[in-house]
Structures are given as C-alpha cells and as structure tokens.
Nucleic acid binder design. Structure first.
Lengths: 331, 331
DNA sequence: GTGAAAGCGCTAACAG
DNA sequence: CTGTTAGCGCTTTCAC
C-alpha cells in the first residue's frame, strides 16, 4: 500500500521544510510565488489530501452534523433528510445519518459516535420511550430535537410542528361537508404528540358542536398496520363517514385500506396526515394535513449555523396546514 | 466552555499516568482491577469521550463509509439508503450521505471530503456526464459504483442491475394480453443504461414478432416531467395501447398522467419501473419492473466488509424482475 | 521569506 | 502492573 502523502512527504520530495508546504497549501502570502506554485503542483500530482483528523485534533472543528431519525423510508423523514442534506451541502457541512429505529439505545450509541468525531451539531427525532439523556452534557455538540420533544435531561433546542389548528380545520371541513360521525386515528395519549392531536380533534368537534359520542377515536401505537386495521374496522362496524388521521404511518395504512376496498370518498371521506407526492394525484387529490418539511429543515440548519454561542437554545414551531383537495364526499 | 476531557486530564485528576487511563479504558488486563474501575467510573462522571481524530491520525482507520446519491426523494435511492444505512448500523459503520444532484463537481467534492476524513469506502451513483475521475488513485478508499458504471479512470467495484430480461418479459407479457402497439419510455441512448434498456425492449418486440414500426419509443432525459409529458402525448396521438417504462422517475411521471386522466388500464396498459409501496395498492396493483434494492445494498456492504484486500475489485449484478399484478387490460 | 519546535489526544513499544 | 517516550499530520509561535 502506497503510504499516505503528507505535507512532510511532499516537503522531503521537494527538499524543503514541511512548514513551507503547509503555508503554500493554505495560500499563505509568506511564500515565494514560485515555491507556492511548485508545491501546489506537486501536491496535486502526488494526490495529496489533507488530513481532517490532524486538523480536528487541534481543535479546528470538523464540519460534520448528524441526523438521527428512526428510518428514512417514511416519507416525512426522507423528505426532511433530503432537504436537510441539500442545505448541508450548500453550507459545506457533511451529514451523517444514523437510523435509530426509535430505539433509545441505538440513539445513544449514535450520539456517542458523533461526539467522538467532534460533530458540530445533531438533529434528533428522540426515541419515544426514554428515561434520561445525559449525553449532551457540556460537549460542543449542539443538539436539536425534531418534531418530538424530550423534556428530561438538559434543555436543548427544538424544531416542532404545531398541527392543532390544522386538525381542528380538518374536523370543521368535514363537518361543513355534512359529516356528523367522524373518526380519528392516532397515537395513544401516552405520547405527547398523540395527546395533543387528540385534544385538537376534540376541540374541533366542540367547535362545530358535535358530541364526543358522535365520534370514534382509535388510538394505538402508530404504524401502517394500525392505520390499515383501524380503517377496516371503521368500514365494517361503525357509523363513521369520515376519517381524520393523526400520524404519517397511520395515514398511509388507512388510505391503503380505503383504496383497496374502493371506499375512498365513497363510503368514507378521508383527511390524511403528511403529504407524499402521490397524495396529490390519487383520486383527484387527497385532502391532508400538510407538514412544512422544508421549513423544518431550514430552521434546523439555521440553528446550527447560527453564530450565537452554543449556549443559545432556540425553539421553533411551524404550523401544519390543512390542504383541501378534491372529492370530499358529503355525508 | 469546559475544556475537553482527555485521558490526560483524567490521569491528572486521579494522580496517575495517562497510559494507565488509556489501558483501563480499553480494558487492557494489565491494570489493577481497582484502578481500572476507578478510572472508568471517573471517566464516566467527567463525560469522557475518546477522540476519533486522535485515533484516526495514528492510522486506526475510522469506520466511516460514504454514500453518494443524486438525491434521496427518489424512491429507489431512499430505499437503498435506508437498507444500506441499516446494514451499516449493524456493522458499526457510520454512514455519511452526500447528495450529488448528479453533478460531477459535487461528486468530486464529496469524494474529497470523504478522503479527508479517511473514510473506508464509498458507494457512488456516478454522475452521468463525466470526463474523468482521478480521485480514487491509491487512497485507502474503496470505491463502489452503484447502478451506473463509469468506465474511465481506475477500475472500481460495481453493483449493477440487469433489467434486460425483465424488460423483455414485460413486452411478452403485454403481447400475451393482446397488445400490438407498445410504447417504450426511456432515457436517451447516450446513457449506457438507456441504450441497454432500449435494446432489451426491441429484443422483446422481436421475440414476439412485433415490428419496430408497431412500437413507439420516446427517449429523453429521464425525469417525472418527461414521463408525464410522454404519457400525455401517447394518449392523444398514437395507437399505442400499452406503455413500458425504462426508469424510476419516468415511471412515476407516466403513471401520474394515466391516473389523473383515468386511463390507467383502460385506454392504456402500464408496466412501471421500480416499486414504490403504493404501486402495489393502486388500481389493484401496478405491474412493474422490480429492482432488487435490498440485494444491492447488502451486496455493496459485503464488498466493503470483505476482508480481501482493498485491491480486490468485485463486480456484482442483480436481475430485476417483472412483477405482474392486477388489471392489465387486453388490447 | 523560511525553518525549527511544540503540542493537540492517543497508543505501541519500551523501560522499570 | 505502571510509567515514560515517541510519533501519527497538522498549524501556531517564535526564531533566523
């Protein structure tokens, strides 16, 4: 194996001091023009690549940021990751993605690895069930929580989604179309987001004077399977004529059920959650609660690149919005 | 800012040598049990994190692998990235994702950054239009080309898809259903994959004794837009009754056009390319050319973790397969 | 202008 | 069992 090309090896090659090489390569003016150019040329030829490690060890912080998400097949995470990655490229940041599978141990492990390589910042979707988080203590690692917020441990910055208004609008929208028995599919109240969304749903019902009894709420660990099962159950034994979804996966699963049974917007009106491309071209367009992915991504990056010291903890929240599309059936 | 906790600072704190700390932390048996435990405890308390840079600088190679893809919203890339990332996690590898937007300059830049941090390997979807690639010269960086293959520069490993058979099958399938005027949407012949797929399509026509004149082939830079436009054109002025797609984006765009115009499997039979989840539950299921994403990902990782020296160049190819689903209309 | 020395955090190779 | 030394590649500081 051809040994590494270093400033020293270049210096030897050229019969000069490694310092001159260093200066030449960093365009330091204190080098004779000829020397500088000779060095740069030779470095190029030899395939020199400066060592990030050697620079990092001296404190020159490496431009690495981490992204910890459960997975990247979920449309929301994929979109976020994509936008965020683009933004990182633009700022010359290297993005390391770790998949946590919503597992706390995996999350911690990933966080540790990021600290080892002196990452500048990390954007995390914190795993739901969690006891503590000691990791962020006094490290240079700027921590930014995405979507979910873990309240234990040191306070950290957060970028959140506020979907309450959108959910309320969804209910009002369905009510306006004549629906009187509206179902809600969402996460259990144990999850903070689940609790909030359910509350918004109920607030929506209130706002149009529908009783809680008129509605059906199915709550369970959010997954496509859950959404699918729930939708099927509603189709079979309930008087619900419309569904509001309180989660990405749930929405996909429920939509799938309606499409497969050809009941979408026939027996069952539907308001999805999230906005995969194909929502807009299925059945004339699926009405949905749209999460502002791009804003979340650029907000997260802004926090990272913010010059305010690492001590500056910021909180940002972006409103989801109801996007009304085609074919919301009446009653 | 609290200065970094190092083995030396721990050593000072404990009044021992930094080597003892080093040994204790790496579970070296040559340390008194008491000492070891005391050190580990103190390190924990102080929030010690070992420096990857310091290790990297000594040659202990850092477990980082890169993935260079145009984007991550494309279903194929997203799936690949996800599977690949999972595999990386399993092997304790850190995955750095760079988005190249199919831009050669961006690709080179990303490659450079990976070399700077002494990444072990990189999986790349090479940008199409490209002159040269000098970067991989004698660096410890194992290079693996994904899907596309760039022939210039040093030879590198590759993980490719062979979709010829599947495309031929697609034509035969449509022919068996009675279609006599089949359209093909694909990339221009300038791209190697475009050329190959088109050839396969024509071979398919041959195999069922359809003349080249009976078919329509629309070739252009692959994009959703292109697929969409092409499909619309076919619907308006052609005698084609079926479409075969030769690309992911094209497939999405064309499918969108058919769904929006409600002509899918009515006026126009359809064979897509790639297999996003929703293909299987739209209109009873979209028949499609399925690319074995997971196999590609694990194959790529296998090459990386392969113990055969970095000199070992491997080439792997995986067959795409035609997945016949519902509702392929006859004539 | 150029070079020599020191040191970042860590571990292999020697002393003790 | 423990400590000392040296050196990885680089830049900052101080000579010449």
């Amino acid at each position: 194996m051809p040994k590494r090309v270093t400033i020293k090896s270049i210096a030897d090659d050229l019969g000069i001091s490694h310092m001159t090489v260093s200066r030449a390569l960093s365009d330091n003016p204190n080098v004779q023009k000829d020397t500088r150019e000779a060095v740069q040329k030779r470095a190029q030829e030899l395939g020199y690549v400066r060592s990030a490690a050697a620079r990092a060890i001296r404190g020159d912080n490496s431009p690495i940021v981490g992204l910890l998400v459960p997975n990247i097949t979920n449309d929301f995470y994929a979109r976020f990751a994509n936008t965020f990655a683009e933004a990182c490229e633009d700022h010359g940041l290297q993005l390391i993605i770790h998949l946590t599978k919503d597992d706390y141990a995996a999350e911690n492990e990933a966080m540790l690895r990021l600290r080892e390589i002196q990452a500048q910042a990390v954007v995390t979707v914190p795993a739901p069930k969690t006891d503590m988080s000691l990791l962020d203590a006094g490290s240079g690692l700027k921590n930014i929580q995405l979507i979910r917020q873990r309240t234990d441990g040191d306070p950290v910055s957060s970028v959140l989604v506020d979907d309450s208004e959108a959910i309320i609008h969804a209910v009002q929208h369905l009510h306006a179309l004549g629906h009187r028995h509206i179902a809600y599919l969402g996460a259990p109240e144990a999850l903070s987001s689940g609790r909030q969304r359910l509350a918004a749903f109920q607030q929506g019902l209130n706002s149009v004077h529908l009783s809680a009894e008129s509605a059906v709420t199915l709550l369970d660990a959010p997954s496509q399977q859950m959404g699918n099962n729930s939708a099927h159950r509603l189709l079979q034994g309930s008087d619900a004529t419309a569904i509001v979804c309180g989660g990405f996966e749930i929405s996909i699963g429920a939509l799938k059920a309606l499409i497969e049974t050809n009941t979408l917007n026939r027996e069952m009106a539907f308001v999805g959650y999230g906005d995969p491309d194909f929502y807009s071209w299925i059945d004339g367009g699926i009405t949905t609660i749209q999460v502002p992915v791009d804003e979340l991504a650029s907000s997260a990056l802004k926090i990272i690149t913010d010059e305010t010291d690492q001590s500056g903890i910021e909180h940002h929240s972006f409103a989801a919005k109801l996007v009304v599309r085609n074919s919301k059936q009446i009653g």
